[in-house]
Design a protein around this nucleic acid. Sequence first.
DNA 1: CGTTCTTTTGATGATGCTCAACTGGGGTGG
DNA 2: CCACCCCAGTTGAGCATCATCAAAAGAACG
Lengths: 255, 255
Amino acid sequence: MQTIQALKPLEPANKAACRSAANRCASCGLHQICLPMGLGESDTDRLDGIILNRRRVLRDTNLYHIGDPFTNLYAVRVGHFKTHQVSADGAEQITGFQMAGELLGLDAISTDRHNCYAVALEDSEVCEIPFSKLEALFTTIPALLRHFHRMMSQEITRDQGAMLMLGNMRAEQRFAALLVNLSSRYKARGYSATQFQLRMSREDIGNYLGLTIESISRMLSRFKKQGLITVNNREIELLDLPTLKKLTMGEPQLH
Amino acid sequence: MQTIQALKPLEPANKAACRSAANRCASCGLHQICLPMGLGESDTDRLDGIILNRRRVLRDTNLYHIGDPFTNLYAVRVGHFKTHQVSADGAEQITGFQMAGELLGLDAISTDRHNCYAVALEDSEVCEIPFSKLEALFTTIPALLRHFHRMMSQEITRDQGAMLMLGNMRAEQRFAALLVNLSSRYKARGYSATQFQLRMSREDIGNYLGLTIESISRMLSRFKKQGLITVNNREIELLDLPTLKKLTMGEPQLH
DNA sequence: CGTTCTTTTGATGATGCTCAACTGGGGTGG
DNA sequence: CCACCCCAGTTGAGCATCATCAAAAGAACG
C-alpha cells in the first residue's frame, strides 16, 4: 500500500537542518524541470535561500483548500497530487495531476486565495515557496522571472489541451491521451515511459476525463484484450505506445 | 452586418500620430480592466511608451497562427476574438472568447511560439505589446508585474472553469453558463448585462461548449419558448437571469 | 432574385451513463 | 487463522443524452 510507503524521515523542525545539502535545489534531481531551471549556481542558491520549508502531505490529505489565503507556491518534491474544482452544485472536476517538479498554486495569484483543492494521491513532499519572497527575487534574477512566466504559460497551454480533450475527443481517445501524457512525463523525469503506477484511482481518472469509472474500467479491459497494455491494479505497462498514440487521434476529421 | 460596422479610421502609419491622446492607456475606457490596472499616472505613461502600434484585424482573419514566433502580447481594444486549438487529427476546439481589455498570447510565452490561433469575430483592434519591452518594464514597475501575474493566473482559473464545464455539465447547463458568463463580462465593461450581441456563430458556440450546432439551436428555441430569453439572429436578451443562473447549477449532486 | 451560407427543425441512432450485481484484495476482529 | 466486511474495481443490461443525417427555412450578398 502506498499509505505506508517508505519515505526518508524528515529532519527536525529546525529549519537550518531542513536545508541540508540533500534538500537543496542544486542537488535536487528535478532542478532542470522545476523552478530553478536554467539558473546559475549562485542564483540557484539564492532561490534556495527562500525555500525554508519542506512540507509532508499524507495521502488523501489536502495541501490546500479552495478559499485558503494564498501565501506560498508549492513545488512537488516527492509524490503526486491532484487539483480539483467544485462547481456551484457540488460537482467535482479534477483539473490536473501533478508530479515531481511541477508547481502548485499558480491559480491563486489572481485572487490571493486558492481557487482549487490540492490533494496528495500518495504520501508526498512539497517545497514551500513564499510568493512574496519569490517576487522579491524576480527583480534581481531576470532568468528566474523568465522561467516563472514560462511555467505559468505552460500551465495555460496544458489546461487548453485538456479543454481540447474534453470538448472533442471520444472516450477511447481521451483515455489513450492520458496514458501517453503520463508516459511522456515519466520519461522526462528519467523513469520508464512504458511501465508505471497509476497513482490515481479509476474514479479520479474518470473524473479528469469527464467519463465514469465504469467506462474507464471497460477501456482498460478492452486495451488489455487488444494487447495494448497490461494492467494489474494500478500497475500498468504500455505494450504498444505507437498504437496508443494513434488512438489519441481517433478518426481523422473530414473537413 | 458587423463586417461594415463603423470603426474610426486609423491614423496614418506614423507612430507618433498613432499615439494621439485618444489612443493612450490613460484615456482608454478599459484601463481599469486591462494591463495598466492600478498603475499610477507616470507608470501608465511608461507602459504606454512601449505600445507603439495599434493593429486592425478584420473579421475572420487571424491575429496570429499556431506556430508563429512570439514577439507581442495583444490587448483587445475594440471587438471580439476567439482562440482555438487544433488537435492531431484536425479537430478544432475553441478555448475562449476574448473581449475588450483582455490579453491575447499568454500561452505563447512557454515555447516562444503561439500555441493557438486567434481570430477576430468582427472587425477589431488590438494594442500590440512587445513582450521583451514589457519584461524590461517589469524590473522597474513592480505593480505592473503584479498585475501581469494576476492576469496570467486569471487565465488559468478561467481555463480550469471551462474544464469543469466540459467535464461535468450537461448541454443545457453549459449553454446557460456561457450566457451568464458573457452577461457578467459585459456588465463589468459597463454594457447591459441582459442585452447584447452574440459575436460568435452558433457553430463557434457549439464548438466552445463541446456540443453541435444543432444542440445550440435547439436550446435557444427551448429557452425562448420558456420565456428565459429572446433571440433575433445574434441579438439576445436575457429575460430571466436568475433562472439562467439556476440552470447552470443543474440538479444538485447527491454526494 | 437567384445563390450561398447559416440556422432551424425533425427523425434516427450510437456513445457513454445509470443501475445493479458480482469479484477480489486487504484489513479487522473473533 | 479463518470469517467477515468493506471498498475499489469489473462486468452486464437497459436507457438517456446528444450526435448524426436530412431537409427546409431564413438571412446575406451580389
